[in-house]
Design a protein around this nucleic acid. Structure first.
Lengths: 139, 139
DNA sequence: GTAACTGCAAAATATTTGCATCCTT
DNA sequence: AAGGATGCAAATATTTTGCAGTTAC
């Protein structure tokens, strides 16, 4: 485990460094993709109580360490935010790609979400683009 | 109720015309916005069993009468598809606007989702754009 | 030592399934 | 009449809350 990196992120976010937080954050850092609650339970080997996982994800959300991904099928997935998010601002205006074959959900940080013109009187604070399709491995 | 229109949509979709389907479809036609399961229960005055509402929404989904809207907060909302969808193909590549103040969720059919360039090997089948912000009434 | 975090129990909420009955065609 | 839709009961899944015990700092 990238002990220092994990610890550093937690401290920067003013979260106390506990076992479950270190392990769960490390899982996110290892996996480049978005994870569902049960993915995390599976990868921790059910070592932590389900409630602890919920609360850990919640505190990561509040501190801007992770964000949720909008999906059409009602499933909830979380992914790491970029560095800028870790300071409280959310800059997750990137593209989320969901593979219809393997279910893998990826944040494509490198692709910029194009600007759009909203009708009069509307103001955007956050834009999410969700692309469903086939990933490079399943194609 | 726009009896004929409702009936015509149901028949075109090869669904038998039942009371709950007529009423629920009419609610969608009346409301220009997206609706959650509990919105529908409320607007029918709890006249139908919760299970019936679930199954009705499910059959509308299968027939392409409605579609779900991806939201970051895990809530499930449904909105009418445009006419083209009713024939089975989904052309809901439009923008969904979610007001952070009143929660109203609208499909902005008139705004076209811009094309984006995916990395090599990726193929898109559906693109959703979800914009959070302030609507023209709350502004 | 104190405030915050965790685990357990339980409640609240959301969704699905089975089956007998009723309704649409 | 037959197949599908509905309502009820119950199972399953998901998320939240309260509280006592434990841990980080």
């Amino acid at each position: 485990m990238a002990e220092e990196r994990v610890t550093s992120i937690l401290k920067k976010s003013q979260l106390s460094v506990t076992d479950s937080r270190r392990v769960i954050l490390d899982i996110f850092l290892q996996s480049g993709n978005a994870l569902a609650h049960h993915d995390i339970e599976a990868r921790t080997g059910e070592k932590y109580d389900r409630v602890t996982v919920y609360r850990t994800l919640q505190s990561f959300m509040e501190k801007g360490i992770i964000h949720t991904i909008p999906t059409t099928d009602n499933s909830v997935k979380y992914a790491l935010c970029r560095d800028e998010c870790e300071e409280g601002h959310h800059h997750d205006n990137h593209i989320h790609f969901i593979c219809e074959s393997c279910g893998t959900t990826t944040c494509m940080e490198e692709i910029i979400v194009p600007l759009i013109q909203l009708p009069k009187g509307y103001r955007a604070s956050q834009i999410n683009m969700v692309v469903n399709g086939m990933c490079n491995k399943c194609k």
